[in-house]
């Protein structure tokens, strides 16, 4: 897989247009790794000069900060900022809304100032610029897709339309859940919930959200976040619908339809 590292490029005295921040889920989680690869496939297909940090990347500190461990967050942030600044990084794209939010909104106060964009916006731009050409009469024509808003893209950063425009480019029938956009229901993983069992209640949040998604009758649940991916996939399995309903990231849907 052609994914040059910043170190590779620096050795050749080169700089990429954009740094692809992979994130911990995108690096280690088997399901999220497929999204990482799909996004790299797109970047290579459109000829974007990009690079990754490879083993020099570390957790942004998002879950530590949200769980209350400010020391650990700032240690991570400072170390990452040192690396990013040493490579003189100007622009970052990431497929993780949590990394996106932290890099964009929380690193500037600690000395890390970059243009940070989420891959949904990046893909939308590529489509609008005509750089991504989708195969006509696509596999999604007439099929129902529902989009699950990630809290860290939507309410946290007001990105509601970019992912939807990407899906519309697929010529699919985009159906909305009753709770969407500003009132979209969380998948249950945010705020470091991904890393612990939920508190006592009468239902798990991801099951409630999966029910919302299934009730649209969509055969594809589109997500734009690795944590949402895990939660919704688990939800679909819990409802024993994995044979008829797939959970896919925007990047995978585009990569599959690319000419």
């Amino acid at each position: 897989m052609n994914a040059p590292t910043m170190a590779d490029l620096a050795a050749k005295g080169e700089k990429p247009e954009v740094l692809f921040w992979v994130g911990c889920a995108g690096s280690f989680d088997d399901r999220a790794k497929r999204v990482t690869k799909a996004f790299v496939k797109i970047l290579n297909a459109v000829g974007t000069r990009f690079a990754v940090l490879g083993n020099e990347e570390t957790c942004t500190g998002d879950p530590a900060r949200r769980a209350g461990n400010e020391f650990l967050f700032q240690m991570q942030a400072m170390n990452n900022i040192q690396v990013l600044n040493a490579y003189d990084v100007k622009k970052i794209v990431t497929a993780c809304p949590h990394c996106f939010n932290t890099l964009k909104n929380e690193y500037p106060e600690l000395g890390g100032n970059y243009e940070v964009i989420h891959h949904s916006t990046f893909l939308q731009q590529l489509i609008n610029e005509g750089k991504i050409k989708l195969s006509g009469g696509g596999t999604f024509k007439g099929k129902k897709i529902t989009y699950h808003d990630s809290c860290y893209l939507g309410r946290a950063n007001n990105i509601y339309e970019a992912p939807r425009e990407v899906l519309q480019a697929l010529d699919a029938d985009l159906v909305e859940m009753k709770k969407c956009r500003t009132t979209g229901l969380c998948c249950g993983a945010g705020g470091a919930q991904m890393f612990k069992e939920p508190e006592k209640g009468n239902q798990d949040i991801n099951i409630a959200r999966t029910e919302d998604a299934l009730s649209t009758g969509a055969s594809t649940i589109a997500v734009a976040c690795p944590f949402c991916m895990t939660m919704m996939t688990d939800g679909v399995k819990n409802k024993e619908k994995e044979s008829s309903v797939q959970v896919k990231d925007l990047a995978e849907l585009i990569a599959e339809s690319i000419k």
């Binding site: 897989m1 994914a3 590292t5 992979v22 911990c24 995108g26 690096s27 280690f28 989680d29 790794k33 990482t36 690869k37 790299v40 990754v52 490879g54 083993n55 990347e57 570390t58 957790c59 879950p63 530590a64 991570q76 991904m194 890393f195």
Partner: peptide, 18 residues
């Protein structure tokens, strides 16, 4: 290990080799 899960940091870039 610089990630919220217990993986070896040296495995972080393995996805590119698969």
């Amino acid at each position: 290990s610089f990630a919220p899960w217990k993986f070896s940091p040296s495995d972080r870039f393995n996805w590119s080799k698969d």
